[in-house]
Design a protein around this nucleic acid. Structure first.
Length: 261
DNA sequence: ACAGCCTCCTGACGGC
DNA sequence: TGCCGTCAGGAGGCTG
């Protein structure tokens, strides 16, 4: 599922395909995924070119030559694909952008958990939707300060996009596994050292995942993701991983390796 | 302000 | 082999 590293790959893909291309037409196949009306969407996108593509957390912001930014979120099964021939249209295409070179960009969503929106500016969108700064742009001191006064399980906090955005379910498990901390540990039980460790592991997991182009198979062998499945084994202890629920999300944990405080 | 639970949606998967 | 129930998950909304 697309989290920060996967969305970064989508951003790079868009930069190498649709940047500076002019949209001559759009086609909305499933209106449910559009957060604005079709006329508003067409008015601000058709006839405009894509002039910059940036990412904050799991969101992509496409600056247009018009007044608005196009905001794209992929949900859990989203993707996009650049293609030319009609016969190559991807399955589950929900929105199509036609460019003046004859190519098209398909916004794909299998389970309809993503959406498209418009905004005046990235900062405006962040304010309106309580979207925190990107995990790779958040300082250690800001991260540690944001933990003050909280007592929810640390995993729930990592999944919350309000202060730091981009971390989803597999990354939260990965970060806490590498931090040797149990995902249910209440934030107010963490030491200053723990907080620094978590921050460093957030950066590490993001950086490695992007460097490996989000191809899980290429991640180092000590990464949890290789064993993050039913019957998976802890790389460090050899014990079977436990599957629990934290914050309503499926969570894999090595109970001997990850300390609960 | 914060925490926790529910909802959306539908393909994939496991069990019989 | 085929059917059917259950699971997965990001973010927003609602409640306590």
């Amino acid at each position: 599922m697309p989290e920060l590293p996967e969305v970064e790959m989508y951003r790079i893909y868009a930069e190498s395909t649709v940047l500076h291309k002019k949209v001559i037409k759009t086609e909305v196949i499933d209106t449910k995924l559009l957060k604005v009306s079709i006329p508003t969407f067409k008015k601000h996108i058709e006839g405009q070119s894509f002039s910059a593509i940036t990412r904050v957390g799991k969101y992509i912001f496409i600056k247009t030559t018009g007044a608005k930014y196009l905001v794209v979120h992929f949900g859990m099964t989203g993707n996009w694909q650049y293609f030319k021939d009609d016969e190559d249209i991807p399955k589950y295409t929900k929105v199509l952008f036609y460019f003046d070179n004859g190519f098209k960009l398909s916004y794909i969503s299998k389970r309809k958990f993503g959406w498209l929106n418009l905004t005046d500016s990235i900062e405006q969108f962040q304010q309106d939707h309580n979207l925190g700064s990107d995990a790779l742009s958040t300082s250690q001191s800001a991260f540690i300060k944001s933990l003050d006064g909280r007592k929810s399980p640390i995993k729930s906090f990592l999944l919350n996009q309000k202060t730091m955005s981009g971390i989803g379910n597999w990354m939260a498990d990965e970060i806490l596994y590498q931090s040797k901390l149990h995902p249910e540990t209440p934030i107010n039980h963490l030491s200053e050292e723990d907080k620094k460790t978590i921050y460093q592991k957030i950066q590490h997991v993001c950086e490695v995942a992007i460097q490996k182009e989000a191809n899980y198979d290429d991640f180092p062998s000590y990464f949890l993701i290789h064993n993050r499945k039913k019957g998976g084994i802890c790389y460090h202890t050899g014990d079977k991983l436990e599957k629990i629920t934290v914050g309503g999300r499926g969570t894999f944990v090595s109970t001997k390796w990850q300390v609960k405080k």
